[in-house]
Amino acid sequence: MSALASGPVPDAFEARTNATFEALMWALSRPGTVQDLPSPDVAGIAEALLDRECRVFCDNPLLAGEIASFGAALVPMALADYCFISLEDARGLAQLVHVPVGSDLYPDAGATLIAAARFGTGAKLRLTGPGIETSAEFSVDGLAAELWSLRAAHCRYPAGFDLFLICGAQVIGLPRSTQIEVL
């Protein structure tokens, strides 16, 4: 029976990548809200977004191999469109200095960062900006304390980088348009 006759049904790959994208889309649309990814595997994000057209920096060799299998080129941080990076300590932050932020002329050249974090404990952040009616607050741990001042210094809107924080199968999105205040 042809696919048309049986009706269109997404295969597992399509269903997974669609759900992953939807979680990322709502995470970025409503900064500070926790969205559920279909799987805790970070490679799932790469699977939904990345292919041979992308340049990726990844500081985790195991994950880097998986990302490379989707066809993306592994490059140094300064050339990357997508960065899978640990921002837990000074080592990660030293890399972050090189992150492409695009320019006023080409804001789309700013990179997207994907970093692990822990939600619900640690530093309390207050967010304002698009996607947030008044202000939103959330707590996040497992990130270097200087990250937020570095982000503020780096992101001169509309240039900047967009950040996805991953905690298990949950994601919080922090687009460059969001102002972050550490409480």
Partner: peptide
């Protein structure tokens, strides 16, 4: 397969997704 689910092939969708996320980030 006879056709991709949702007509667009996977690489077209990935490109759309990347651009849609960028578009949200810079309203």
């Amino acid at each position: 397969a006879a056709f991709s689910y949702g007509f667009l092939d996977a690489s077209a969708k990935r490109e759309m997704r990347r651009k849609m996320l960028k578009a949200i980030a810079v309203p």
